[in-house]
Computed example of a mutant assay.
Amino acid sequence: MKKTIKNLAVVALVAFTSFAFANNDVEKKAVKVESSTVVWKGYKVTGSHEGTVAIESGSLSFDGDKLVGGEFVIDMTTIGATDLEGEYKGKLDGHLKSDDFFGVEKFPTAKLVFTKVKAKGKNSYEVTADLTIKGKTNPVNFEISVYGNKATAALKVDRTKYDVRYGSTSFFDDLKDKAIYDEFDLVTDLQF
């Protein structure tokens, strides 16, 4: 009995030590927020709008030269249109920040955390991540390419999963040409 307990203790110690040092080679590289961009594009029946939103903080994790993780915080208070000017830009920016869309007063940040990274090619990866917008978290899938100290990714987001319902035909009837499509695009160019 003593020998069994002793063997279990040794196995537990070895397992603990292995787990404790398993990620020793992972290097977290901070994203240079001032030289990285996130561009959004939303679509409606009568056209589209696009703009930017700033990265508050972010990092990509590497095991050697292989991408293994990532985490980003987005400053939703910076969301704004780049395809409009003057009064129309002010109106759209204000509307995007309102509770009709992203409610930035209550939810000033969004978050993206990689949960699975699978190599697809030499510089290409398939990523599954948890995206949190307006306090709601849902999985998203996208591809990311890494070249040197740069990375690019594009993803589609279904805004209705995050309680962004304004103008959505999924929730409102008879919108006709006022309808806004549920999915919007995000395109990122990262430097680290």
Rank of each mutant, 00 (worst) to 15 (best):
Y162P: 01
K41Y: 04
A81Q: 04
G94M: 09
G90A: 07
D99I: 10
L112E: 11
H95K: 10
G64D: 11
N23T: 00
A22I: 07
A9I: 08
E126C: 03
K44H: 09
V11K: 08
D189V: 06
F114A: 15
A30W: 02
G70P: 13
L112D: 07
T46F: 10
A151N: 08
K106D: 13
E34G: 09
T132N: 03
K44S: 10
E85M: 12
H49N: 12
I5W: 13
F192K: 05
S61T: 05
S59C: 07
V14I: 13
L155H: 13
V68S: 02
G70L: 02
K32M: 14
F72L: 08
Y88I: 02
P108C: 05
A22S: 14
E87D: 15
K41N: 13
K32N: 15
N138W: 06
D173G: 01
Y43E: 13
G64A: 13
D185K: 12
Q191A: 04
L155D: 09
R159L: 13
L112I: 15
A20W: 06
A151F: 09
S170H: 02
N141I: 06
S57M: 04
D99A: 15
K156F: 05
L175M: 08
E71V: 04
D158R: 04
D130M: 12
D189I: 01
S35N: 12
H95I: 04
L186A: 04
V104T: 14
K29H: 03
K91S: 11
Y162M: 07
